[in-house]
Nucleic acid binder design. Structure first.
Lengths: 132, 132
DNA sequence: CTGCATCCAACTAGATACTG
DNA sequence: CAGTATCTAGTTGGATGCAG
């Protein structure tokens, strides 16, 4: 029998969360979320506002967020077709946690960059200690 | 001049954050972080506790976290070599935000799964509305 | 024990062309 | 306008063998 509970347990527990976070906190989702929290938007509006995203990736992102109940997709019967995306109540609950993380990132960024520079500098002189 | 500030601004601002989150909230980092917040650990301990990670990925994760100042790597001069990883003060500040996100995930998971089922079910009968 | 180097399979994402 | 379909280049991650 497996007696260790520290190990696999956490991984089993973490897996669905991991999966969810991957779907909801990925590269473009935060930006889309951000915009749709302001107001509902059309597909082409989102493209204009997030120029770096390709149409393919934006479609994928919107589909994924829609599937997870974070955003809503409404097809407007006009000519030509128009589609409006908007945030759902569930999606709104995601905002505060995301803000917390972003605040952390903003706050610690200086320390992070300092740590990066230090690390990278050390790699530049890997034999330094042998010289003295 | 560019009069719209809603657009590119956020993306410019968001990019470094995005980058940071990718490095720190990725697949294995949360698990490693979780363990090292308990106590310092050796490389092989981490492997044992997180069986699903390969040696390559674990090494990459540890390097990345070390570079960002989240964890510390101490080489113990024993025979054979031993390496101890531990959390840094900066790393500890990452815990609370991560907890917030995980709590959100845990809390909303039922709604998320419900949304997923609904979405998937609708795709199973794409012509349903045409039948009545 | 800890980790680097290499090869390779799988997935990702961009570019492009086409449709209701 | 809002996508789908396809092809392809680049990236990720596992498996394996070797080394300090």
């Amino acid at each position: 029998m497996t007696t260790n509970s520290t190990a696999a347990d956490r991984f089993e527990i973490g897996a669905p969360h991991r999966d969810l976070l991957d779907q909801v906190l990925d590269k473009w989702s935060l930006l889309v979320l951000n915009e749709l929290c302001e107001r509902p938007m059309r597909f082409s509006e989102l493209r204009r506002i997030i120029p770096a995203v390709t149409q393919k990736s934006l479609t994928a992102t919107l589909r994924r967020l829609e599937r997870n109940g974070i955003i809503r997709r409404v097809l407007l019967s006009t000519r030509p077709v128009a589609v409006e995306y908007s945030i759902t109540p569930l999606g709104k609950t995601l905002r505060p946690p995301v803000e917390v993380i972003l605040d952390w990132a903003a706050e610690q960024m200086p320390l992070i960059e300092q740590a990066r520079r230090r690390y990278d500098d050390e790699l530049d002189r890997p034999v330094a200690e042998q010289l003295r």
